[in-house]
Amino acid sequence: MKILVTGGLGFIGSHTVVELQNAGYDVVIIDDLSNASESVLDGIQKITGTKPDFEKIDLRDRDAVSAFFKKYSDISGAIHFAASKAVGESVNKPLLYYENNLSSLIYLLQELTKKDAANFIFSSSCTVYGQADELPITEKAPVKPAESPYGNTKQIGEEIIRDTAKIYDNFNAIALRYFNPIGAHESCEIGELPLGVPQNLVPFITQTAAGLRQELSVFGDDYPTSDGTCVRDYIHVVDLAKAHVMALTRLVEDKNETNYETFNLGTGTGSSVLEVIHTFEEVSGVDLSYKIVDRREGDVVAAYADTVKANEVLGWKSQLTLAEALKSAWNWEKKVRGIN
């Protein structure tokens, strides 16, 4: 069965491609290489023994998307990662985020709904909940007004998919609302390698430890949390990737209860920014230089998942710890930078 993975050379996408191939799926990747490198294909091949097909396409190009589906007419499902993803950047560049994250989704759905049957997994986010009223966050928590344009694109994306699933009986979809993916494959063949300045905490930590960054900024220490810093649910990317395969298989085997479902993906445990920093220092043996700076617009105080639905309905549960994830991220960073 041939599966399209958009953004398949990115951080989460590449790890999911590995798990799909390990599960016996045939994979074709679309990526525009705006935040990834084609060399990731070699890392995937070293892990699985198979190099997936790859097409460099900007999904905002409707004609290119249409031509792709004519060329690969045997695609029976898609996992959609391709999107701009930085909360802070989205606040400063809202139109870029709305164009990139929504037009690409629409053009994909237009092609998939032409098929006799199509299964679709959407890379959503816990940002759809905003600052939740209760913790941990269940799938029944209300979707709040978004704190950022990035979060809003995930909300609108889910609405588009839900409305599409209502109309097309041949179309089944699952939105996976994940929390904060970190870590790298244990082989150190693939990992998180942002182009330019990292927008997420852990690559900024590892780059600071490696000497690429002078110091780490902690955005605010006056939040109502145990140590004043924001709390998030950090999940190992390999656990996350395996959940995508299980979600796809759920649709392939017609085990879904409705043709649009949502699942939270997290560990169920919240960790503060300072906890992450200190845990990294413990597993790496490196003292990090960091400073407290002003709060960042768009950040919520705390977010961590209630994972009961994913555990019981999807049959998935995270296995790897925060320390294991941070250790793998550091091993990857050291390999990339040539550090012994």
Rank of each mutant, 00 (worst) to 15 (best):
G183W: 00
G183K: 06
A184N: 10
A184S: 06
A184K: 08
A184D: 04
A184Y: 08
H185K: 06
H185G: 06
E186P: 03
E186A: 13
E186R: 05
S187T: 04
E189A: 05
E189G: 00
I190E: 05
I190L: 03
I190H: 03
G191M: 05
G191Y: 05
G191H: 14
E192C: 11
E192R: 08
P194V: 07
L195D: 14
L195R: 11
G196R: 09
G196V: 14
V197N: 15
P198R: 12
Q199T: 15
Q199K: 12
Q199Y: 15
Q199V: 11
N200T: 14
L201G: 10
L201R: 10
V202R: 08
P203N: 08
P203R: 11
I205W: 10
I205N: 08
I205D: 10
I205Y: 07
T206I: 07
Q207C: 08
Q207M: 14
Q207A: 14
Q207H: 15
T208D: 13
A209Q: 12
A209R: 07
A210M: 12
A210I: 14
L212S: 15
L212G: 12
R213I: 15
R213E: 11
R213D: 14
Q214M: 13
Q214C: 10
Q214D: 15
Q214Y: 12
Q214I: 11
E215K: 14
E215H: 11
E215R: 15
L216G: 13
L216D: 12
L216K: 11
L216H: 14
L216E: 12
S217H: 09
S217Q: 15
F219D: 10
G220E: 08
G220P: 02
G220C: 06
G220S: 06
D221W: 01
D221T: 00
D222Y: 01
D222G: 09
Y223F: 13
P224I: 02
P224A: 04
T225W: 00
S226D: 06
D227A: 02
G228A: 03
T229G: 07
T229Q: 03
T229R: 01
T229Y: 02
T229I: 03
T229V: 06
T229N: 05
C230D: 12
V231A: 04
V231H: 03
D233K: 08
D233V: 04
D233W: 01
Y234S: 04
Y234W: 08
H236M: 03
H236E: 06
V237P: 07
V237F: 07
V237G: 05
V238A: 00
D239W: 00
D239T: 08
L240M: 10
L240S: 09
K242T: 00
K242V: 01
K242A: 01
K242H: 00
K242P: 04
K242D: 06
A243W: 05
A243Q: 01
H244Y: 00
H244M: 06
H244P: 03
